[in-house]
């Protein structure tokens, strides 16, 4: 079978995929004060990875991103549960969150909340689940 030359697709993908990744990370961090958050951020990241898979093929991207997405799901869950259980150490009820203001060289004063760690768990789980679903169906040979 002669492979069609998909030069245009690949060139635009390398641009768009990284724009998408950037935007997904932006909306992940924006989740506290603006629309966004772990779920939508994770979906968009999965979208970006999926775009790479579509234009470069499964073998190439597997080499590029050697991630076991099933482990990603359980890591995400572990982080989310960990932030809940972490409050036990401070004698606070399950899932209590806290926040603080920190000074960084470039960004200036930033509000950091432990709710973001929970969101990180959601983010990783969503990426893991979506990629596992799609890759399992894509790799199905029968």
């Amino acid at each position: 079978m002669i492979r069609p030359n998909n030069l245009i697709l690949r060139t635009t993908t390398s641009l768009i995929a990284f724009l998408l990744l950037g935007f997904s990370i932006y909306s992940f961090f924006a989740g506290h004060n603006a629309p966004g958050g772990g779920f939508i951020g994770g979906l968009m990241t999965a979208g970006a990875i999926l775009l790479l898979y579509m234009s470069y093929g499964i073998e190439t991207v597997d080499e590029m991103l050697p991630i076991n997405y099933t482990t990603l799901i359980s890591s995400g869950l572990a982080i989310a549960v960990g932030t809940g259980v972490g409050s036990f150490i401070f004698g606070a009820p399950f899932l209590s969150h806290t926040f603080g203001y920190f000074h960084f060289p470039i960004f200036g004063e930033v509000e950091l909340a432990t709710a973001m760690l929970f969101d990180l768990g959601v983010y990783l789980t969503v990426v893991g689940v979506v990629m596992t679903i799609i890759l399992t169906i894509a790799n199905d040979q029968e």
Binding site: V81, G84, F94
Partner: peptide
């Protein structure tokens, strides 16, 4: 206020997450 109430939920949840790795 007692975290005792959440332990019967969290313990199997943690077990499930650990068992995915193994």
């Amino acid at each position: 206020m007692s975290n005792l109430a959440v332990l019967p939920i969290v313990l199997p949840l943690i077990a499930a997450i650990i068992l995915i790795f193994f």
